[in-house]
Design a binder for these strands. Structure first.
Length: 637
DNA sequence: GCCGTTTTCGGCCCGACTGTTTTCAGTCG
């Protein structure tokens, strides 16, 4: 765990402890917000002083002191925050686990603790079995059943799933929804649309002509004066019913007129990394899927609302209030003193149909979903009057990191070329492993020399066939533990492209890792640093180098840092791409192809790049061939 | 605890759904 993650974890836990202690809820919210801010920082908090911390949106005087206290004590080998320790002594630690059970919040858990002396999952189970749990206010049979199934779900309920598993699942369900009668449009929202590397739940929006446009509760309360039975408008929409009975749905968590939440089965991949592997998933892993039915006229407002992020939404709503308007998932409305929401009083929205018109009405340029994370960005976009033109899938014209059957790939060189042609690439690089990667059948110097000859001949053949594609002779050369490279300079100089990557010694301490990677970045023959940290999402933390130093060196030496597009890697990660983009360093987005389907991972690399605000001019894969070749040749001279 | 195009004090986004209630608190996103 990096220092930032450790600080974020403490702050987030402090937020929960504050809630359980019944303290001011806004104080708790402030702590969890500060945790999110620290988590998404590119630089280590270690390198920041108090003014730098306080300058961050969401971190003030008090929390800055706590972060500094943590850093100072960490350097002495006993990282802690005194206030956090103090609260931990007041709250039984088992309560935090109970708080993670879906459907249980701070009020209920606090009541369990205070009234029934429940302190952990064991005493909770006892209270369920003895029936004493029912003594709590607002606690009935159904609530108890819900807690029981929540207990059975265990950690699964809170685990975040890699985007590479969640997106195909969301797309499959979206297709199934599109097949339902009356459905006009289905969109994926939430963190999937923002392209985050891991996903907690899938949000889907369905547009139908007959979706209710006003709050059902209001209508029902009006009608319930006449009758106590459920009115027709309280019944779930037919699309909601159809969704809840899809074959992959295991549990219906909630189901109302316009929305439903279910747990549905995740299909694991069978490829190189078996989708997390059996050790990390229960036998039939599930994740939560939320569906909401929306009418055409408020689709933009709903899409915006359910795309988030939460912090982005809150900031937009505050903006709306500042200009005497109110923003909800039905649209942007003029603000007044009435208690009934504007959409329920027949008031026309100022904007609601598309996201673009809502941003415009708020005096903002359109903000792409990938950039809807940090509220502080909004003011910047407004000041500039525009958002940078982010790199897009269509901008990518080459892949500079790919393997063949010569090492551990499953494609022949010809198959590699066919895949590249299919995607309209002008260039594809063959970068098989170097000799130290024995397990990946790394090439010896002799075999690499042979491969170079093969590639030269292939280029001639392709030209004579009239195919406009260039195959680059390259290597994914190991960066050894001390930062030296796995092939000597003489051999590397014969190559068109050198991708240098760390594969072993991935638990080095940060200082050693920084030195190691700096050595590779400044090597005159290295063009790209492949998967710079070697992390695997949900599986291996990888190296934790001083990223600001790496970025500075990468800019100086015009060495590109790779975004490895495989969804298990996404390395560099988004916040580091952002820092690199800001600093003006070059970025490569490569698929590290081992089989044909790996080319399809490019979209995940693109999401990460966009979240890092990468523009085409800083992305070497978006350059025309001549510019790319000139850059490759410029190194080593 | 944080924050300020009205504020250095007094606010802090807004609605759906559930399960328990006779009108709403708690949880979630």
């Amino acid at each position: 765990m990096s220092l930032n993650e450790a600080v974020a974890q403490r702050l987030s836990e402090m937020s929960k402890l504050l809630e359980l202690l019944g303290e001011n809820q806004f104080k708790a919210i402030a702590h969890s917000r500060a945790a999110r801010v620290v988590e998404s920082l590119a630089d280590s908090v270690e390198s920041m002083d108090k003014p730098a911390l306080v300058a961050l949106d969401g971190i003030g005087d008090k929390i800055a002191d706590k972060i500094l206290e943590f850093c100072a004590s960490a350097s002495k080998g006993s990282p802690h925050i005194a206030e956090h320790e103090k609260m931990l002594k007041q709250v039984p630690p088992g309560l935090l686990e109970i708080l993670d059970i879906p459907g249980l919040g701070p009020k209920t858990v606090r009541a369990m603790w205070q009234e029934l002396k429940i302190t952990d999952k064991v005493s909770l189970k006892k209270a369920i079995d003895s029936g004493s749990l029912l003594k709590l206010p607002r606690m009935g049979e159904k609530a108890v059943e819900k807690i029981k199934s929540g207990l059975a779900l265990g950690e699964e309920a809170t685990r975040r799933i890699a985007i590479g598993l969640a997106l195909p699942m969301a797309e499959r369900i979206a297709d199934e929804l599109r097949a339902i009668k009356g459905v006009q449009r289905v969109e994926i929202a939430g963190s999937l649309r923002r392209g985050r590397e891991t996903i907690a739940d899938i949000d889907l929006l369905v547009q139908t002509a007959d979706a209710p446009g006003v709050a059902p509760k209001l209508r029902s309360s009006a009608k319930s004066k006449a009758t106590t039975s459920k009115s027709k408008s309280d019944e779930p929409h037919p699309v909601i019913e159809a969704f809840c009975s899809l074959p992959d749905v295991r549990d219906v968590i909630s189901k109302g007129p316009t929305r439903a939440s279910v747990r549905a089965v995740i299909n694991l991949h069978s490829g190189r990394w078996k989708g997390g592997g059996p050790d990390e998933h229960p036998k039939e892993p599930t994740m939560q899927v939320d569906v909401r039915v929306i009418p055409d006229r408020s689709f933009g407002a709903a899409l915006m609302y359910f795309t988030g992020s939460k912090d982005h939404n809150v900031a937009l709503r505050q903006r709306a209030l500042a200009q005497e308007q109110t923003l909800n998932e039905y649209g942007l409305f003029p603000e007044d003193e009435e208690e009934t929401p504007p959409q329920d009083r027949g008031i026309s929205p100022i904007a609601s149909k598309t996201e673009a018109e809502i941003y415009k009405a708020l005096g903002l340029p359109y903000i792409p979903p990938e950039l809807r994370e940090h509220p502080a960005d909004i003011a910047e976009f407004q000041k500039a009057g525009k958002v940078p033109k982010l790199v897009d899938l269509a901008d990518i014209k080459c892949d500079l990191h790919a393997h063949t059957t010569d090492s551990d790939g499953r494609m022949s060189m010809r198959e590699l070329v066919e895949n590249a042609l299919k995607r309209g690439f002008h260039t594809i690089a063959v970068t098989d492993h170097s000799k130290s990667s024995a397990i990946a059948n790394g090439l010896s110097p002799e075999r690499l020399r042979d491969q170079i000859k093969t590639i030269r001949a292939l280029n001639k053949a392709l030209k004579s066939e009239g195919l406009d594609i260039r195959v680059l002779a390259g290597s994914e050369v190991d960066i050894l533990a001390d930062g030296s490279l796995d092939f000597d300079d003489e051999l590397l100089a014969e190559l068109d492209i050198v991708v240098a990557s760390p594969h072993a010694a991935l638990s080095q301490d940060p200082a050693t890792a920084t030195k190691r990677l700096l050595k590779a970045i400044s090597h005159p023959l290295v063009h790209i640093i492949g998967h710079p940290t070697g992390r695997l999402i949900n599986r291996r933390h990888g190296l934790d180098p001083a990223m600001d130093e790496l970025i500075t060196a990468a800019k100086e030496h015009r060495t590109a840092l790779e975004i490895n597009a495989h969804w298990m890697r996404l390395d560099l990660r988004d916040v580091h791409v952002r820092a690199a983009t800001r600093a003006g360093a070059l970025i490569a987005i490569d698929c590290d192809d081992h089989e044909s389907s790996d080319f399809d991972n490019l979209r995940f690399g693109i999401s990460t790049a966009r979240r890092g605000m990468l523009t085409p001019d800083q992305c070497v894969n978006a350059w025309p061939r001549e510019k790319l070749l000139a850059w490759l040749k410029s190194k080593g001279r």
